[in-house]
Amino acid sequence: MSRATLHGQLLEQAMHLATRDRHRPRMANLRRAVSSAYYGLFHLLVHEATCRFLPARPADTRTLALRRTLARSLAHKEMKNTSRLFAGLSSHWPPWLAPLLGSRGSVPLAIRSLARTFVLLQEARHEADYDISRAFTRQEVRLLIDEARTAERGWRKGARTQEIATLYLYALVLPALSQFQKCAPAP
Protein backbone atom coordinates (compact mmCIF):
# COMPACT_ATOMS: atom_id res chain seq x y z
CA MET A 1 0.00 0.00 0.00
CA SER A 2 1.62 3.22 -1.15
CA ARG A 3 1.40 6.23 1.15
CA ALA A 4 2.20 8.45 -1.83
CA THR A 5 -1.17 7.87 -3.46
CA LEU A 6 -4.55 9.17 -2.37
CA HIS A 7 -5.99 5.67 -2.24
CA GLY A 8 -3.03 4.46 -0.15
CA GLN A 9 -3.53 7.30 2.30
CA LEU A 10 -7.25 6.60 2.55
CA LEU A 11 -6.71 2.93 3.33
CA GLU A 12 -4.13 3.88 5.93
CA GLN A 13 -6.51 6.43 7.42
CA ALA A 14 -9.24 3.79 7.59
CA MET A 15 -7.09 1.49 9.70
CA HIS A 16 -5.96 4.39 11.89
CA LEU A 17 -9.56 5.36 12.63
CA ALA A 18 -10.66 1.78 13.26
CA THR A 19 -7.92 1.08 15.78
CA ARG A 20 -7.35 4.41 17.56
CA ASP A 21 -9.86 3.77 20.39
CA ARG A 22 -8.49 0.80 22.26
CA HIS A 23 -11.48 -0.16 24.38
CA ARG A 24 -14.80 1.33 23.32
CA PRO A 25 -14.49 2.46 19.71
CA ARG A 26 -16.38 5.63 18.89
CA MET A 27 -19.08 5.08 16.29
CA ALA A 28 -18.01 8.19 14.35
CA ASN A 29 -14.49 6.79 13.96
CA LEU A 30 -15.77 3.40 12.82
CA ARG A 31 -18.13 4.98 10.31
CA ARG A 32 -15.44 7.26 8.90
CA ALA A 33 -13.10 4.25 8.73
CA VAL A 34 -15.57 2.35 6.54
CA SER A 35 -16.05 5.41 4.36
CA SER A 36 -12.28 5.91 3.95
CA ALA A 37 -11.78 2.25 3.06
CA TYR A 38 -14.43 2.50 0.35
CA TYR A 39 -13.02 5.71 -1.05
CA GLY A 40 -9.59 4.13 -1.06
CA LEU A 41 -10.85 1.51 -3.50
CA PHE A 42 -12.95 4.06 -5.40
CA HIS A 43 -9.98 6.34 -6.06
CA LEU A 44 -7.76 3.37 -6.89
CA LEU A 45 -10.18 2.24 -9.59
CA VAL A 46 -10.82 5.76 -10.90
CA HIS A 47 -7.08 6.42 -11.15
CA GLU A 48 -6.33 3.11 -12.83
CA ALA A 49 -9.27 3.34 -15.21
CA THR A 50 -8.64 6.90 -16.35
CA CYS A 51 -4.88 6.38 -16.73
CA ARG A 52 -5.47 3.23 -18.76
CA PHE A 53 -8.11 4.92 -20.93
CA LEU A 54 -6.20 8.17 -21.45
CA PRO A 55 -2.47 7.47 -21.26
CA ALA A 56 -0.45 10.69 -20.98
CA ARG A 57 3.08 11.91 -20.39
CA PRO A 58 3.47 14.26 -17.40
CA ALA A 59 3.83 17.26 -19.72
CA ASP A 60 0.76 16.41 -21.76
CA THR A 61 -1.52 18.90 -20.04
CA ARG A 62 -4.43 18.52 -22.47
CA THR A 63 -4.72 14.79 -21.91
CA LEU A 64 -4.25 15.24 -18.18
CA ALA A 65 -7.12 17.74 -18.15
CA LEU A 66 -9.30 15.30 -20.10
CA ARG A 67 -8.37 12.60 -17.62
CA ARG A 68 -9.47 14.75 -14.67
CA THR A 69 -12.82 15.41 -16.36
CA LEU A 70 -13.24 11.72 -17.08
CA ALA A 71 -12.47 10.93 -13.43
CA ARG A 72 -15.33 13.18 -12.36
CA SER A 73 -17.68 11.41 -14.77
CA LEU A 74 -17.44 8.01 -13.13
CA ALA A 75 -20.54 7.27 -11.07
CA HIS A 76 -20.69 5.02 -8.04
CA LYS A 77 -23.73 3.04 -9.18
CA GLU A 78 -22.37 2.36 -12.67
CA MET A 79 -19.08 1.27 -11.15
CA LYS A 80 -20.97 -1.08 -8.85
CA ASN A 81 -22.92 -2.58 -11.76
CA THR A 82 -19.74 -3.25 -13.69
CA SER A 83 -17.98 -4.60 -10.61
CA ARG A 84 -20.87 -7.00 -9.92
CA LEU A 85 -20.20 -8.64 -13.27
CA PHE A 86 -16.46 -9.05 -12.71
CA ALA A 87 -17.08 -10.20 -9.14
CA GLY A 88 -19.37 -13.00 -10.27
CA LEU A 89 -22.29 -11.36 -8.44
CA SER A 90 -24.32 -10.93 -11.63
CA SER A 91 -24.51 -12.83 -14.87
CA HIS A 92 -26.14 -10.12 -16.97
CA TRP A 93 -23.14 -9.30 -19.13
CA PRO A 94 -23.88 -6.58 -21.68
CA PRO A 95 -23.79 -7.89 -25.25
CA TRP A 96 -20.69 -5.89 -26.17
CA LEU A 97 -18.71 -7.19 -23.21
CA ALA A 98 -19.54 -10.90 -23.13
CA PRO A 99 -17.67 -11.91 -26.33
CA LEU A 100 -14.57 -10.00 -25.22
CA LEU A 101 -14.39 -11.89 -21.96
CA GLY A 102 -14.30 -15.35 -23.52
CA SER A 103 -15.25 -17.93 -20.96
CA ARG A 104 -17.33 -16.19 -18.30
CA GLY A 105 -15.64 -18.08 -15.54
CA SER A 106 -12.26 -16.77 -16.50
CA VAL A 107 -12.01 -13.58 -14.44
CA PRO A 108 -8.79 -14.05 -12.44
CA LEU A 109 -9.21 -14.35 -8.68
CA ALA A 110 -7.45 -11.08 -7.79
CA ILE A 111 -9.62 -9.07 -10.17
CA ARG A 112 -12.74 -10.87 -8.97
CA SER A 113 -11.70 -10.12 -5.41
CA LEU A 114 -11.19 -6.39 -6.05
CA ALA A 115 -14.51 -6.10 -7.89
CA ARG A 116 -16.34 -8.00 -5.14
CA THR A 117 -14.75 -5.94 -2.39
CA PHE A 118 -15.70 -2.75 -4.19
CA VAL A 119 -19.36 -3.85 -4.22
CA LEU A 120 -19.30 -4.86 -0.55
CA LEU A 121 -17.55 -1.68 0.57
CA GLN A 122 -19.83 0.58 -1.43
CA GLU A 123 -22.84 -0.74 0.45
CA ALA A 124 -21.04 -0.57 3.78
CA ARG A 125 -20.05 3.02 3.00
CA HIS A 126 -23.66 3.92 2.29
CA GLU A 127 -24.74 2.43 5.62
CA ALA A 128 -21.87 4.11 7.46
CA ASP A 129 -22.59 7.55 6.03
CA TYR A 130 -26.39 7.57 5.91
CA ASP A 131 -28.00 4.84 8.03
CA ILE A 132 -27.68 5.67 11.71
CA SER A 133 -29.83 2.67 12.67
CA ARG A 134 -27.02 0.38 11.44
CA ALA A 135 -24.48 -0.30 14.14
CA PHE A 136 -20.85 -0.97 13.31
CA THR A 137 -18.39 -2.81 15.51
CA ARG A 138 -14.63 -2.83 15.56
CA GLN A 139 -14.45 -6.47 14.45
CA GLU A 140 -16.78 -5.83 11.53
CA VAL A 141 -14.95 -2.69 10.44
CA ARG A 142 -11.46 -4.16 10.74
CA LEU A 143 -12.44 -7.04 8.50
CA LEU A 144 -13.97 -4.68 5.94
CA ILE A 145 -10.73 -2.67 5.90
CA ASP A 146 -8.66 -5.84 5.65
CA GLU A 147 -10.77 -6.88 2.66
CA ALA A 148 -10.01 -3.54 1.01
CA ARG A 149 -6.28 -3.72 1.77
CA THR A 150 -6.02 -7.31 0.56
CA ALA A 151 -7.86 -6.49 -2.66
CA GLU A 152 -5.64 -3.45 -3.25
CA ARG A 153 -2.52 -5.53 -2.65
CA GLY A 154 -3.67 -8.24 -5.04
CA TRP A 155 -4.32 -5.63 -7.69
CA ARG A 156 -0.95 -3.95 -7.24
CA LYS A 157 0.96 -7.24 -7.15
CA GLY A 158 -0.06 -8.47 -10.54
CA ALA A 159 -3.77 -8.32 -11.28
CA ARG A 160 -3.48 -4.88 -12.87
CA THR A 161 -1.19 -6.21 -15.60
CA GLN A 162 -3.57 -8.95 -16.70
CA GLU A 163 -5.50 -8.63 -19.92
CA ILE A 164 -8.87 -8.81 -18.19
CA ALA A 165 -7.86 -5.94 -15.93
CA THR A 166 -7.91 -3.66 -18.97
CA LEU A 167 -11.35 -4.95 -19.88
CA TYR A 168 -12.58 -4.30 -16.33
CA LEU A 169 -11.16 -0.77 -16.33
CA TYR A 170 -12.62 0.04 -19.74
CA ALA A 171 -15.98 -1.35 -18.63
CA LEU A 172 -15.82 1.06 -15.68
CA VAL A 173 -15.09 4.02 -17.93
CA LEU A 174 -17.39 3.44 -20.88
CA PRO A 175 -20.72 4.04 -19.05
CA ALA A 176 -19.24 7.34 -17.81
CA LEU A 177 -18.67 8.73 -21.29
CA SER A 178 -22.29 9.82 -21.59
CA GLN A 179 -21.71 12.05 -18.56
CA PHE A 180 -18.39 13.37 -19.79
CA GLN A 181 -19.71 16.61 -21.23
CA LYS A 182 -21.64 17.48 -18.07
CA CYS A 183 -18.48 17.12 -16.00
CA ALA A 184 -16.26 19.27 -18.20
CA PRO A 185 -15.10 22.43 -16.43
CA ALA A 186 -16.82 25.66 -17.45
CA PRO A 187 -14.72 27.77 -19.87
Binding site: R84, A124, A135, T137, R138, Q139, E140, L143
Partner: peptide, 22 residues
Protein backbone atom coordinates in the same frame (compact mmCIF):
# COMPACT_ATOMS: atom_id res chain seq x y z
CA UNK B 1 -29.63 -11.34 -4.03
CA UNK B 2 -26.18 -9.84 -3.42
CA UNK B 3 -24.77 -11.39 -0.22
CA UNK B 4 -23.24 -8.95 2.26
CA UNK B 5 -21.56 -11.16 4.87
CA UNK B 6 -20.28 -9.36 7.98
CA UNK B 7 -18.75 -10.50 11.27
CA UNK B 8 -19.16 -9.35 14.85
CA UNK B 9 -18.15 -10.85 18.17
CA UNK B 10 -20.65 -12.10 20.71
CA UNK B 11 -19.97 -9.31 23.19
CA UNK B 12 -20.31 -6.69 20.43
CA UNK B 13 -23.66 -8.17 19.44
CA UNK B 14 -24.91 -8.12 23.03
CA UNK B 15 -24.22 -4.38 23.16
CA UNK B 16 -26.05 -3.88 19.86
CA UNK B 17 -29.03 -5.95 21.03
CA UNK B 18 -29.38 -3.68 24.05
CA UNK B 19 -29.73 -0.58 21.88
CA UNK B 20 -31.08 -2.08 18.69
CA UNK B 21 -33.28 0.14 16.56
CA UNK B 22 -33.12 -1.96 13.39
Amino acid sequence: AIPYVRFRTESEQILIDEQRTD
